[in-house]
Design a protein around this nucleic acid. Structure first.
Length: 1027
RNA sequence: GGGCGAUUAGCUCAGUUGGUUAGAGCGCCUCGUUUACACCGAGGAAGUCGGGGGUUCGAGUCCCUCAUCGCCCACCA
């Protein structure tokens, strides 16, 4: 044997070497190339907040498989890499560390210094993330790596903002925002989650000012947030309580009718209560309504402010007291009432969550302090009513995990009406196709709301809003505008301005230009201190990364991109916004197709995240199993399903035992191995003593089968290469091939077809399953075994070598998108033995499999008849093997067998004689239409082909075992026959089912009956023997 | 409350348009180290496809309904 190959693929040694070789050869780079068609993917830029976990592992595996496939198909394939600055998330992480490590806030540092720190963080994590991607084998064009906050992206953001501003699609307005008092910024609705907390429901009474006779002296309201009463500017009552009550009752009745019996009592109770309310509450509400219409006022206790009683349909007569306090500056619904009724809006909060001067005596208190004091003070004044315990859904900031305060603040908005519509149209008319299709609905529904997009964030980390404002009286505005119009920067389009109609004149500057800034700052304009929502820059990603707003050759060639591969949770936040921004800026959709892949959950069904401690670092999986195993395992999971569970384990560093992760142990800083009692640290370790412990990796044993497959492929290739010595490729005449060769090539071609179709439809799981089955079951378990005797037969050696080498060549190409390193290593090793390859036409192999051509499907090779014939061989072989196993026949013992069959079957099976011997230790005694039946035998009948196989058990018989095998068989046959008889006795089946289906059933029934006869006969004989 | 999805072997999951006996990986049992591979080979056991109803000659697959679980959206003074 001339070639030495280790029996394991050493991924730790090979992968870095291979990756470096690809890089050095420029395999990752894509250029504008008119000779080829482009295929482009932009990476969903990972946040620089932290490291990647397996969810990203899946996302990027799928992208890499697709881009490698397209590259092999001859496209100029560009995978654009980069990272996202992730405004709030990143700033929050850095601020948190600042607080923990130095006990400082961002204000101690100042804007510039904080931003500098975040850049340092970004550099560190960007490096780590890109390193992770490289370890996974991602074939991104690294020379083009972008960052959403770099200069290229900044230019795109400025140009976009300027354009929208000039089109008057951007405006500044007072809006109620979700205020994060910890981070002191507004967060979007999407960044808010609700949590149920135990709270109370307090009833208050507000005195009516100078009540007339017959009028109530108090109005009762209730709230879960007493402190907000300091900002109340009205109490609302329904304008038509009778009608509202009728409506509520009608709705209840409707629900009652539609509900199942078990829910009815509860609804009936509600109806009953409603009826009672008509007498208990309605008269009062009517009176209050009249008072509201008469413009009567209430006295707000504690702050002693006169507030209005208003009639507004927000107040529901069927709930609570029927009246509701209105705090327009701190409640979204109240805000709407405030707008409708033209109420004052009093903000009682400071940005840090303490109460401000509007709260009077309560100024300076925190919300919770104020809540207590308000309740106590009201009680002291006798204005406190009942207090109920109640579960409250409290909004929390996703970033800081602290409660959200609704807060009235100045914010920038993008008008979404026309933009949303354009993005809806693009999906409706399939300029953008979403796979799986079910995700279309969510996309369209969300955009259909057309809610304006709040884009400003009170942060320091991000794209600064390029607007300078001047506060002036409306009357002076025309004068200043006149002056601005005279500026050359205005006439040549470098600035635009708008007056908000109230007190603010705003200038937007197109490009970063200190001279213009100085000039307008000289006029008294001040730059907005806010930055833009992260999604604003992410929305431009497909065109900003290609150089927009410059008209680059790359844009012209690579845009629109081909496919976006992402996870479902950002379909709205990101995908939808890319579509509308792409349409606005480029006049063309950003991508033709969107593929949404499943999410990876841990063993407890929870999404992976670093903060939960269940996030698996792909690098740890790669260290343990190798990148190809991980990629293959992940691609295996990419089916049409929504979620995939991936139980997660710690790996004990001292004994390598895997320990299931639980809710309990996943948050510990150190763990004691239950097996070897060694103590190891986890990702949470912080103290020096914990850190000094060996670190336990977080992995998942789900990747073991991927590793096993890698090993299988490696060894199959090893076998082939060790046996390719002296092989001189020469064109093969297909007609000279044996059945087993034709069979393998047919299966190979079918597999090529399946994999190609699967990749084209994002059915990764289907593709890798087909490859796995072909490689393991057909190539390894059959062809390689068959090859063994043939390789030592000089007449067959050359052909067998040819088929082996060719199949290995094609298989490596088919597997390459999923297992790039292994296939490259095998490919290049194979090249040292067989540099020129092919079956009917011999060509030099390409230097890299990464650059090899994707296998073509030549349908000529697909031959169903041959596959069926080979299946017959497999069946006979399987039957003999089962008999051997049941009879417990030692491997070295050869069993004799005879086959009774038609001539043509004999011609088929006879050439397989050697394989029966090598693969089942079975020696044929006789073939033919009549054979001598051994006295003691195990019999298998393949009646469809009119074949009987008799294994001579004279030397081996274990009557017990054989009887058991036969009675099992009998049982199964009887059941099947009964089922089929019933089916065929059914007139409607026979008359209505397609004739061929009926015929097939009849045939198979006949077949089964014959088998049954054989089995019955065998049992009889065996029983006699036993007795 | 609205929407989307899931429920198939002990575990994690496949199952394309309805059509013979429902598959895989891991785990389990039996046997086996003959020079590709013990990260292996041969064989085996194991599922009334969540419950109920319907359509159909025929349902894991289509429809209705219930249950459980998950996610998204909205709302709850």
């Amino acid at each position: 044997m001339s070639i030495e190959i280790p029996n394991r693929f050493d991924h730790a040694e090979a992968c870095p070497r291979i990756y470096a070789a690809w890089d050095a050869a420029g395999c990752f780079h894509a250029e504008v190339n008119p000779a080829k068609k482009p295929f482009t993917i932009v990476i969903p830029p990972p946040n620089v907040t932290g490291a990647l976990h397996l969810g990203h592992g899946l996302n990027n595996t799928l992208q890499d498989a697709l881009i490698r496939w397209k590259r092999m198909q001859g496209f100029e394939a560009l995978w654009m890499p980069g990272t996202d600055h992730a405004g709030i998330a990143t700033q929050a992480v850095v601020e948190k560390r600042l607080k923990e490590q130095e006990n400082k806030t961002r204000h101690d540092l100042g804007r510039e210094a904080l931003v500098q720190r975040i850049w340092a963080w970004k550099d560190q994590y960007e490096g780590r993330i890109l390193g992770q991607l490289k370890r996974m084998g991602c074939s991104c064009d690294w020379r083009r790596t972008r960052f959403t906050l770099d200069e290229t992206c900044a230019a795109a953001v400025r140009a976009t903002f300027f354009d929208l501003f000039a089109k008057q699609l951007i405006y500044r307005g007072k809006r109620l925002v979700n205020w994060d008092t910890y981070l002191q910024t507004a967060v979007s609705d999407d960044e808010v989650f609700n949590e149920t907390v135990q709270g109370s429901f307090w009833h208050f009474r507000y005195p009516v000012i100078a009540p007339e006779k017959g009028e109530p002296a108090f109005v009762e309201i209730a709230t879960t947030r007493p402190e907000t009463m300091l900002g109340d500017t009205a109490v609302a009552v329904h304008p038509d309580p009778d009608a509202a009550m009728d409506k509520a009752e009608a709705e209840l009745r409707e629900r009652l009718a539609a509900s199942p019996a078990k829910d009815r009592p509860a609804i009936e109770l509600q109806l009953q209560n409603l009826k009672e309310r008509r007498t208990t509450h309605l008269p009062l509400l009517r009176a209050l309504r009249d008072m509201a219409k008469a413009g009567r006022m209430l006295r707000l206790p504690l702050v002693e402010r006169d507030i209005r009683l208003v009639a507004d349909a927000w107040a529901k007569p069927e709930l609570g007291s029927g009246c509701v306090k209105i705090t327009p500056a701190h409640d979204p619904n109240d805000y709407e009432v405030g707008i409708r009724c033209n109420l004052d809006m009093i903000n009682i909060l400071n940005p840090d969550g303490t109460l401000n001067e509007s709260a009077g005596d309560y100024q300076g208190l925190t919300i919770l302090q104020a809540r207590k004091k308000v309740v106590a003070d009201l009680e002291a004044q006798g204005l406190l009513g009942d207090v109920e315990d109640r579960e409250i859904e409290l909004p929390h900031s996703d970033r800081s995990k602290t409660p959200i305060e609704p807060y009235l603040a100045d914010q920038w908005f993008v008008r979404m009406d026309s933009l949303s519509q354009s993005a809806m149209d693009a999906v409706s008319d399939e300029r953008v196709k979403i796979y799986p299709e079910r995700y279309r609905k969510g996309y369209l529904d969300w955009l259909g709301e057309k809610r304006d997009w709040p884009v400003s964030r009170q942060l320091w980390w991000g794209h600064r809003i390029p607007v300078w404002s001047l506060t002036i009286a409306a009357a002076e505005a025309p004068q200043v505008e006149e002056k601005l119009r005279d500026l050359p920067e205005f006439s040549d389009g470098r600035i635009v301005f708008q007056f908000d109609g109230n007190t603010s004149l705003q200038i937007c500057i197109r490009n970063e230009d200190p001279s213009i800034e100085t000039k307008i700052e000289g006029l008294g304009f001040v730059q907005d201190s806010d930055v833009l929502d992260t999604w604003f820059s992410s929305a431009l990603w497909p065109h900003s990364t290609l150089g927009w707003p410059e008209k680059t050759a790359e844009l012209e060639y690579f845009y629109p991109t081909s496919t976006l591969i992402t996870s479902r949770d950002i379909i709205t936040l990101w995908v939808a916004r890319m579509v509308l921004m792409g349409l606005n800026n480029m006049g063309e959709v950003p991508f033709r197709e969107v593929f949404i892949h499943p999410k990876i959950l841990d063993g407890l069904g929870e999404t992976m995240s670093k903060s939960k401690g269940n996030g698996v670092d792909p690098v740890e999986v790669i260290d343990k199993f190798g990148p190809d195993s991980m990629r293959f395992g992940l691609a295996w999971l990419a089916t049409d399903t929504q979620d995939v569970r991936m139980p997660v384990q710690y790996e004990c560093p001292s004994c390598n035992k895997l320990i299931d992760q639980t809710k309990k142990n996943r948050v510990l800083t150190k763990i004691e191995c239950p097996s070897c009692a060694a103590i190891f640290s986890t990702q949470w370790a912080e103290s020096p003593e914990d850190l000094s412990l060996p670190r336990g990796a977080v992995v998942s044993e789900r990747f073991e089968f991927g590793r096993n497959f890698v090993n299988k492929l490696w060894n199959a290739a090893r076998f082939a290469m060790m046996n390719l010595e002296g092989y001189q490729p020469q064109a093969i005449d297909p007609s000279s091939l044996a059945l087993e060769d034709r069979w393998l090539l047919s299966r190979l071609t079918t597999t090529t077809q399946i994999v190609t179709d699967a990749l084209g439809n994002y059915r990764y799981g289907e593709g890798v399953r087909a490859l796995y089955d072909f490689a393991w079951d057909e190539f390894c378990s059959f062809y390689v075994e068959i090859a063994k005797p043939r390789l030592s037969d000089p007449d067959q050696r050359q052909t067998t070598q040819g088929v082996l080498a060719y199949t290995l060549d094609v298989l490596m190409r088919l597997l390459h998108p999923f297992m790039p390193f292994l296939t490259e290593e095998i490919w290049q090793t194979l090249a040292t033995v067989v540099p020129r390859r092919g079956l009917v036409s011999i060509q030099p192999a390409s230097e890299f499999v990464m650059r090899a051509a994707w296998p073509e499907v030549d349908a000529e090779w697909i031959d169903k008849t041959i596959e069926e014939q080979f299946a017959l061989f497999q069946e006979v072989l399987g039957a003999i093997r089962e008999i051997r196993s049941r009879q417990n026949i030692a491997p070295r013992d050869k069993v004799p067998f005879s086959v009774r069959c038609e001539k043509e079957v004999q011609q088929l099976l006879q050439p397989m004689t050697a394989y029966f011997e090598s693969m089942a230790g079975a020696q044929v005694v006789e073939w033919g239409t009549t054979v001598a039946i051994p006295a003691t035998n195990a019999h298998v009948s393949l009646t469809q082909l009119n074949v009987d196989v008799y294994v001579d058990l004279e030397q081996f018989i274990d009557v017990e075992a054989e009887l058991e095998r036969n009675s099992k068989l009998l049982e199964r046959l009887v059941k099947q026959i009964a089922g089929k008889e019933q089916k065929l006795q059914n007139d409607s089946f026979v008359s209505r089912a397609p004739a061929e289906v009926v015929a097939k059933e009849r045939e198979s029934l006949e077949d089964l009956r014959q088998q049954l006869t054989g089995v019955e006969q065998a049992i009889k004989t065996l029983s006699a023997k036993q007795a």
